[in-house]
């Protein structure tokens, strides 16, 4: 080891402990019984108890919210993979008037912040009778994130060798067959990024769900957690367990697909 690197290690070690501490301490809290909170927060739970999770899951109705989150985020991610890839295919390969104009219109959508659009979005959903349906959230999620995903998939398509598509066309396949049998499978690496990132954004979103899903049986984990932790400010174990029910699945996904998440999130920092 080179001695010159010692200060580097010290800074990296201290900062990564600081970055990891909030999550680690939350895991500790979530596994503590009320009497264990008399000890310092950095002392691990002994013995670990799962009461906080059980109570959030059943009494806090997180079993319902979890199911709702899974339904919405899975539909979001699957539809996004298909719709964004189809649009990207057309914008990358097909020749038609207005191709450029559509790209410019999409760039405008990259900038649209949901916090500013929520009011008019509500009236649109209301006029379709979609308030308090999952469809409202799914449609808004897709529409708001589409421009970003179309751009990254289009960029991926443009980097593929052009001969691949030409070869398929010579075989006499129609446009949809070329897309579905050749280009969509070829785009798999970027489609995985689309699916993971859209799932993450959908899973973590609060505002759209807060506004469009006001009935308890429809609530997702983010809305559930918002109310749960507001009512349990003096129950750190309960809030911690509730937060981890939301965070757990994305942490597992992240550990499995680190490279894809980092690629997607660094490109998606803009959104």
């Amino acid at each position: 080891m080179r001695w010159g690197l010692v200060p580097v290690y010290i800074v990296l070690f201290v900062t990564s402990v600081l970055m990891a501490a909030p999550l680690v301490l939350t895991v500790f809290s979530s596994l503590k019984s009320p009497d264990q909170f008399l000890r310092a927060p950095w002392i691990p739970p002994s013995p670990p108890v799962f009461d906080n999770f059980v109570s959030a899951w059943y009494k806090g109705r997180f079993n319902v919210y979890f199911k709702n989150s899974v339904i919405i985020s899975t539909i979001d991610a699957s539809l996004m993979a298909l719709i964004a890839t189809m649009a990207a295919y057309a914008l990358a390969f097909l020749r038609f008037p207005g191709n450029r104009a559509l790209l410019v219109i999409l760039i405008l959508g990259l900038m649209a912040p949901v916090t500013a659009l929520i009011l008019p979005l509500y009236t649109v959903m209301n006029s379709f009778g979609l308030v308090n349906t999952r469809l409202a959230v799914i449609a808004a999620d897709l529409a708001l994130a589409l421009p970003f995903f179309i751009f990254i998939v289009r960029a991926y398509f443009l980097n593929l060798p052009a001969e691949l598509r030409d070869a398929a066309k010579v075989d006499g396949a129609n446009e949809f067959q070329v897309f579905w049998n050749v280009m969509f499978p070829l785009a798999k690496p970027i489609v995985v990024v689309v699916v993971l990132l859209e799932f993450l954004w959908s899973w973590n979103d609060l505002l759209l769900r807060l506004v469009f899903l006001t009935k308890d049986p429809l609530r997702t984990l983010t809305v559930g957690l918002l109310f749960f932790q507001g009512l349990h400010t003096h129950d750190p174990g309960g809030s911690a367990a509730a937060a981890l029910i939301l965070a757990g699945p994305v942490i597992i996904l992240f550990l499995l697909f680190q490279r894809q998440f980092i690629q997607g999130l660094t490109q998606g920092a803009f959104k």
Binding site: P22, N204, L206, Q229
Partner: peptide, 16 residues
Amino acid sequence: AYFLPAVQAGVVTATI
């Protein structure tokens, strides 16, 4: 350690 917080929801961060 640096990146794991980046996949957390705003509400989770708020709760913690």
